[in-house]
């Protein structure tokens, strides 16, 4: 909520400054913003639908059963896949991870799950491809998946 207030204040201040400098350019600013909004709306709508689905289907008890402490590297791979598909707001990621560990999920698996939730997005790929082009979008996500697996291994070696 507070970040929303801050964001709106910054946007308003920027708009006022811009308006004082040039009215016509400011009109263009608003037009541009609106056309961007219209363009990403279809993707954002599907992304939101996926957030709702993820949060209700991947419940902590379900997840803990799939990626339990004994699940080993298969659990790491599974949690990376689930984390890449699911879309969960970033401020929920760590509370969810905490609940998972309490419910018996292994730490390396949860580490892979959390980092892939934040860095990999299979369902935001259409949006990413539109902005960066195909090859960059695929390469970035592939590299991020690789990173999640490495990070999970690191946690496994150091903390388990």
């Amino acid at each position: 909520m507070i970040s929303g207030v801050i964001l709106y204040s910054i946007a308003m201040i920027l708009l006022i400054l811009s308006w004082r400098k040039s009215v016509s350019r400011t009109k263009k600013v608003v037009q541009n913003a609106w056309s961007m909004f219209a363009k990403i709306m279809p993707d954002v709508m599907s992304i939101m639908l996926l957030v709702g689905l993820s949060l209700s289907v991947f419940t902590p008890s379900f997840l803990s059963s799939v990626i339990g402490e004994q699940s080993g590297w298969i659990g790491v791979v599974t949690s990376t896949i689930i984390g890449s598909i699911a879309l969960i707001p970033s401020f929920i990621v760590f509370p969810l991870g905490d609940t998972l560990v309490e419910n018996g999920a292994g730490l390396p698996q949860v580490a892979a799950f959390m980092s892939s939730l934040m860095a990999v997005g299979i369902f935001t790929l259409p949006l990413e491809r539109k902005t960066f082009g195909n090859s960059f979008a695929y390469a970035r996500n592939a590299a991020a998946i690789f990173m999640c697996l490495l990070f999970s291994l690191l946690i496994w070696v150091v903390m388990v």
Partner: peptide
């Protein structure tokens, strides 16, 4: 949950797009 996150996003997006456009 979808409805709630859509509302959140609709609130969050306009100032960010204005920022980007400025």
């Amino acid at each position: 949950l979808t409805g709630k996150s859509m509302l959140d996003m609709l609130l969050l997006l306009p100032p960010i797009l204005i920022f980007v456009s400025v």
